[in-house]
């Protein structure tokens, strides 16, 4: 965020000194829609973390389930007198609790894969930009080739080869995402690398690692954050899709995608709620992240800065 200020000419009249972070917050809050998105996302994160504490029922504790409560419509009562606000699935599970637990898994997998992908993509992108030449050409060619195939196909190939499992789906999501980060970081780093402060650092005979991580990296972060937000949403959607198809998470990890898949067979008999509400939760998650990402792009993009 500091860079956006660095390369602007000094203002003619002195303006109130603002820390970059404060400036960032003020810019971000300017869009009520983005604030709303952020609030919704924070609520979702809270629900995901606190799922065991706030769920009306532990949906995976068989002692609490009664098969006679299966497929109760939203608002109906269970045999124990408890209200299923969002209905229940074929096993008599409360959908609301199922969604809380599902969010936990979906968000966990999405965020985890994003962290690993950022790390790999960032390293690859920085290496390519800093060293240039053949290393750059090689890394970027791999990135180009991978990005010419749609994400779902790459994930499909990997899952077909690797098999099913939580670790494997994270590997597939990382493999799909790293290239976006690598390309973004390389693009920014190439511009930053030619600036005077990097030259100055080289003149001080600082090591490669120190220059890359202490000087270059922090200045490459803003675009990375923007891409990262959008990619987390993509990762969550992709995981849900793969799990829905039955090739993603195993049934022991009931993410939102699996919940929706469970309701698939009941759609035709008009029992919509088993698929409808988890999908709504998924949609809400993706839209709220995208709203935040859109505003971040506007705020962090130096070209658009007022």
């Amino acid at each position: 965020m500091a860079t956006a200020l660095d390369d602007r000419p000094a203002p003619a009249t002195p303006v109130a000194v603002q820390s970059p972070f404060r400036r960032f917050v003020v810019d971000f809050v300017a869009s009520p829609l983005a604030v709303f998105g952020f609030a919704v996302f924070m609520l979702i994160v809270f629900v995901a973390i606190a799922a065991p504490l706030i769920s009306p029922q532990n949906p995976y504790d068989l002692m609490q389930l009664d098969i006679l409560d299966g497929r109760v419509a939203p608002g109906g009562k269970s045999s124990a007198g408890y209200t299923f606000f969002l209905g229940s699935d074929s096993q008599g599970r409360d959908m609301l609790s199922g969604i809380f637990y599902g969010l936990r898994i979906s968000l966990g997998v999405g965020v985890m894969s994003a962290i690993v992908a950022v790390f790999i993509g960032m390293s690859a992108g920085l290496t390519a930009a800093y060293f240039g030449g053949r290393i750059d050409a090689l890394i970027m060619r791999i990135v180009d080739i991978q990005l010419s195939f749609p994400a779902i196909l790459v994930a499909l190939i990997l899952l077909a080869v690797l098999g099913q499992g939580t670790g494997k789906i994270i590997v597939a999501l990382v493999a799909v995402q790293w290239a976006y980060y690598a390309r973004t970081v390389r693009g920014t780093a190439l511009v930053e690398r030619r600036k005077e402060y990097i030259e100055a650092a080289s003149c001080l005979a600082l090591g490669h690692a120190r220059i890359v991580f202490r000087h270059l990296l922090p200045n490459c972060l803003p675009p990375l954050i923007v891409v990262g937000t959008v990619q987390v949403a993509h990762a969550i959607a992709l995981e849900a899709t793969l799990s829905f198809l039955g090739i993603g998470l195993p049934i022991t990890e009931p993410s939102l995608g699996l919940l929706i898949a469970n309701g698939f067979e009941y759609i035709l008999s008009g029992k919509y709620w088993i698929s409808f509400f988890p999908g709504l939760a998924l949609l809400l998650t993706i839209v709220s992240i995208n709203l935040v990402g859109d505003q971040l792009r506007d705020v962090l993009n130096p070209r658009l800065q007022r």
Partner: peptide, 20 residues
Amino acid sequence: LGFSLPTFWVGLMLIMIFAV
């Protein structure tokens, strides 16, 4: 909305509305 909606879920909802 079209960008954010998960394709598979939209498919289910289409079946629910137009077929069921």
